[in-house]
Each structure stands twice: as structure tokens, then as C-alpha cells.
Design a protein around this nucleic acid. Structure first.
Length: 547
DNA sequence: GGTTAGTTGATATG
DNA sequence: CATATCAACTAACC
């Protein structure tokens, strides 16, 4: 132990850094700090920190609802920690600038945190590790955001991420499950740090951010249907698991994307921020399935849903360009088109397709939409109707989805646009027929697109079928009160299947290095121009792959 | 090289 | 409600 200033012994500080993993249950990195402190309380102080970089408010794609979820999660975390004789210290600034100061100011001996595979986090964490080493600070990290460590899964697959779900399943079935940890025991009073130089000038310097500090445009705040935080996460967990018959027989494709209340658990936002441990959820599900001999299985079961998350995390961990088309080894190179008007219409629920618009408006308002609803709008934006890049849709989801998780968001967009993992591009969702199956009367559309509320069931999914006089009678004239459809699905989806076929052919040629058909040539044909563009884009990736 | 399976399509038909 | 057809993809496996 250090002795400074002659006779006063200086306590060393143990720091746990929260990033994702905003919980006290099943948090091995937090647990380590607590256990070290409890073993020698006379030597240590404990500080649990969250770093808030005011700069990221400008460049991060985070909408108001998502900021609110984070703010609520931090407040709840602070509350949980206070019950354990600790608290959350929210420190404002950039990690690489802050850590050297914190190491000095607090005499830090140990730093722990949960590992993360996102490229931004990987880079940041490497820099922090270097700084820690320079300051003689020990760093311990734990993989607890996912059930399985992506590195371990890859090691069991010749060092590569499995690219089919079944292959992935085969690998993880043979892996040991992590031990789920409980809530830490209360810290002894004496490890609470005494106030530092900053706190003595401003006692609120480390307080949780207020909503006003995080949200620039409060008018964008929607309904607070899914409040953030561990307390709410655990409440929702219990509520979701109460009906064991429902849990055991769950099949995702049989749940409705357009019910008025969610037909699934909506645990995803809590998993994303780590308010709920995926490992705990997995354990709880297994306990229930053990009591029900007949139960659904992956990929459609609830366990299957959790494993999809693991699947995408593993794939993403191996590809820093996972969220882009260019330079992404998984991704088909497709000459999507920029169409700002159509993109804006899709983004704001003004495509003229009520089912699509209802989904996009629910997303903006509530921050969550059903997985199959995501399929419908993602297919519509990309290969189905608008032929706009999945990266554009990814950006909109990133802003609006409470559960936005880098690996999952990109992975699902790759899937839906048939750019990777899924290849049956001829299966196209109908923006009219798909929603009718589970909501034949259109109640969901009436809720989220209220201007159409008076339309009868027989044309609420396709209002252009109503005559002008009928539209007047229903109080909503197309082109005036609600947009005309921006494309004709019946026509464009067939054209787009042909475009996908052509794009796949080019990608195949690049992959195999072979030309499949005799040289065509009409240099002015727009379709060929598109092909050449895709080909030249792809050659860069092929070169990268070959090395 | 040939066959089969792949989280969740739409439509027509019985 | 089940099945065939549409047109035909890739990855995995034999």
C-alpha cells in the first residue's frame, strides 16, 4: 500500500466502467470490483463510472426516445448501486482524455469492464488499455453482453464466424454455458470514496444526466412505453415468463407484427443496453423448457431468438465493415440507387402504403416494432420496392429503435436485403397482403395512420381502390390528406427481382472469376451500367478476400 | 457433381 | 387449412 505525505495512508480506487451492461445482476466485471473491495475494505475505495462524451451528441445517430431510455437506465443503475452502498459516477468527457486524469485523481489500481466487439469500442478500449498500462493500472475484462464469446465460437469453426444459423447452432450446442452471477453483496460503508477535488467545488459534478442535457429536440420525444432500466427489465422478464405454456410453445413466425399491443416480449431494448442479462434470460428459459417436454425449438423458439442475437454478434465480431456494403466480406455488392424523396417518404411514413406507413410511424412514436414488421419495411425499402441501400434504412433504425444494437441492426439489414445470410430474394413481402393475414380489419393502421380511420376493412390496406367520392366520404382524399402510393408494388417488385438476379450473377462471376454468359454489349444500356458499377465495386472486395 | 435445406412469401387450388 | 407452383438463390454436405 502506498503511503503519501508521510503518515496518511492513501486508499487505492477500484473502478468499474459501465458502457453497455447497465445492471448490477449477472455483471462479472462489477462483481470483481466489489469482491476485491470487500476482501480488504481498509485499502480500497470503489467507483462505478459511466463516461458521457458530450461530443457524441452531435455525431451519434441517437433519437430522442433512445436518449431517454439511456437516461432512465442510468438513473435506475445509480439507484441500484446506492442500495449496495455505492453510486454511479457519470463523468463528462472523452475516454482517452479522461482516464489519465481519473487514474491520477483517484489513485486507481484496478479497472474492470465488459468487453465489446463493436469497432468503435474495440479501438477505444485498446487505447484505454494502453493508458492504463502507462499508469500501472490493472485491467480486467469480461464477456457478458452475449451468452457465448464470439472469439470462442469462431475458434471452434476454423477461426471463422459461421454464416448459417444451423452451423452456428451446431457449434454452440457443444459449448459450455457461462455461470450466471447474482447481485453483488452490499459494500462496507468504509469503501465509499471521500469527495475528490472536483466534487468539493461542485457536489453534483458526477450526477446522472438530466433529459434536457441529452435531448436537443424534445419535440421528437414519443410515448414512453418502454422505460429504461434494470428494475423495469427484471419486471418485464418476470411478466414475460409468467405464462410457461406461452413460453414453451412460442414460435416467432406465428406472432403478429401488427397487433395493437406487442405480441412478443419486448425484452430487446433491455438486452441491448444490458439492463437484462442475456445469460440470465437464457437460463430462465431453459428452466421452463425443462418442465415442458413438448416445446418449440430454434430458430423459431424464444431461445432461438436469443441465439439469433449471438449469431449476429459472432458474424459482426469478425468484420469491422459489418455495417457497410463496401469492404464487407459477407455482403453482396448491389448498385442501389439514391432516391432522397422516396427515402424521406419511407422514413416518415408517407409511402402511401398504409401498412408500411403505420409501422414506420409506430417506430418513430414508440421506439419498437415487431420483428416481422421490420421485415416488411426493410424489404420495401430495399429489394422489394424502393431499391434504396439497406445502409440508409440501417441509419433510420439506428436513430429510432430503442433496441438498436450495432451487430443486430446491420445483420438484420444484410439479411432482409438479401445481401448476406439470406438469399431467396424472390420471396418478397407484399405491403398489402402481408399485414392482412394477422389484422384483416386494419385496426393497427387506424391506430397509427389515423387519417385513414374511417376507411373500411376492404380497402384500408389499399386506399387507392376507393373512388374519389368514397375517399371524400371517409374524410381522407389521397394526394391531399394522405399520399398517393409512391410506387406500384405489383410492377416494381417484379423488376427488382430481375435486378437482384442480375446483381447476384455479377457477384457470382467475381467470386468464381468466371464469365457466365457470352459477351453482351450495349454500352448505353442503363442496366449494364448498373452491372459494371456493381462489378467494379466488388473487385475491391474480391482483392481483399484473396490476400 | 448433385442433392437438400434454409427463422417467418404470395397466390391459386383443393 | 394443406399443398403445389412461381422462379431459382446460396451453403453445406454427401
Amino acid at each position: 500500500m502506498d503511503v503519501k505525505g508521510g503518515n496518511v495512508s492513501q486508499r487505492r480506487t477500484l473502478v468499474h466502467w459501465f458502457r453497455k451492461g447497465l445492471r448490477v445482476h449477472d455483471n462479472p466485471a462489477l462483481l470483481q470490483v466489489f469482491e476485491v473491495a470487500r476482501a480488504a475494505p481498509q485499502n480500497y475505495s470503489v467507483r462505478a463510472i459511466f463516461l458521457l462524451d458530450p461530443g457524441i451528441l452531435d455525431w451519434l445517430q441517437v433519437g430522442a426516445n433512445r436518449w431517454r431510455f439511456l437516461q432512465q437506465s442510468l438513473c435506475d443503475l445509480d439507484k441500484q448501486l446506492r442500495e449496495l452502498n455505492s453510486r454511479l459516477y457519470v463523468v463528462r468527457g472523452k475516454p482517452v482524455e479522461l482516464f489519465p486524469q481519473l487514474f491520477e485523481r483517484w489513485h486507481v489500481e484496478l479497472l474492470t469492464y465488459e468487453s465489446d466487439i463493436e469497432p468503435y469500442a474495440v479501438q477505444r478500449d485498446a487505447a484505454v488499455q494502453k493508458l492504463a498500462a502507462a499508469h500501472q493500472v490493472k485491467v480486467d475484462t469480461y464477456c457478458s453482453h452475449t451468452i457465448y464469446n464470439p472469439e470462442v465460437v469462431m475458434a471452434r469453426n476454423l477461426g471463422k464466424a459461421p454464416i448459417t444459423y444451423q452451423k452456428f447452432l451446431g457449434i454452440v450446442e457443444k459449448l459450455k454455458l457461462p455461470k450466471v452471477r447474482g447481485r453483488p453483496e452490499k459494500l462496507p460503508e468504509e469503501v465509499q470514496p471521500s469527495e475528490d477535488s472536483l466534487e468539493s467545488t461542485d457536489p453534483h459534478v458526477y450526477d446522472c444526466p438530466t433529459l434536457a442535457q441529452l435531448i436537443k429536440r424534445p419535440e421528437e420525444l414519443g410515448v414512453n412505453k418502454f422505460p429504461g432500466g434494470e428494475t423495469e427489465a427484471l419486471r418485464r422478464l418476470e411478466a414475460s415468463l409468467r405464462d410457461e405454456q406461452w413460453v414453451a410453445s412460442f414460435e416467432k413466425p406465428k406472432t403478429a407484427p401488427n397487433s395493437l399491443e406487442p405480441s412478443t416480449t419486448v425484452l430487446s431494448p433491455y438486452l441491448k443496453f444490458g439492463c437484462l442479462s442475456a445469460r440470465l434470460l437464457y437460463q430462465r428459459l431453459q428452466e421452463i423448457l425443462a418442465r415442458h417436454t413438448k416445446h418449440s425449438k430454434p430458430p423459431v423458439s424464444l431461445v432461438g431468438q436469443l441465439l439469433w442475437r449471438e449469431f449476429y454478434y459472432t458474424a459482426a465480431a469478425a468484420e469491422p465493415n459489418f455495417d457497410r456494403m463496401l469492404g464487407n466480406a459477407y455482403c453482396m455488392q448491389i448498385a442501389w440507387q439514391e432516391q432522397p424523396d422516396h427515402l424521406a417518404a419511407w422514413t416518415h411514413g408517407r409511402t402511401g402504403y398504409p401498412f408500411i406507413d403505420a409501422i414506420m410511424r409506430q417506430l418513430r412514436l414508440e421506439g419498437w416494432i415487431h420483428h416481422l414488421a421490420r421485415h416488411a419495411v426493410a424489404c420495401f425499402l430495399t429489394r422489394g420496392d424502393l431499391w434504396i441501400s439497406w445502409e440508409e434504412g440501417q441509419r433510420v433504425f439506428e436513430q429510432l429503435l430503442l433496441d438498436q444494437d450495432w451487430a443486430l441492426n446491420a445483420g438484420n439489414w444484410l439479411w432482409l436485403s438479401a445481401s448476406a445470410f439470406f438469399h431467396q430474394y424472390f420471396r418478397v413481402y407484399s405491403p398489402v397482403a402481408f399485414g392482412k393475414k394477422t389484422d384483416p380489419t386494419g385496426a393497427y393502421i387506424r391506430k397509427y395512420v389515423p387519417e385513414l380511420a374511417k376507411y373500411p376493412a376492404n380497402c384500408i390496406f389499399e386506399p387507392w381502390k376507393a373512388t374519389l367520392s368514397a375517399q371524400r366520404e371517409y374524410g381522407c382524399v389521397l394526394g391531399v390528406d394522405y399520399p398517393q402510393r409512391i410506387v406500384n408494388h405489383d410492377v416494381v417488385h417484379k423488376e427488382n427481382i430481375k435486378r437482384m438476379s442480375a446483381a447476384y450473377k455479377v457477384n457470382r462471376e467475381v467470386r468464381t472469376g468466371k464469365q457466365e454468359d457470352e459477351e453482351e454489349d450495349d454500352k448505353t444500356s442503363p442496366e449494364l451500367t448498373g452491372k459494371r458499377k456493381a462489378k467494379s465495386i466488388k473487385s475491391g472486395v474480391a482483392a481483399k478476400r484473396r490476400r
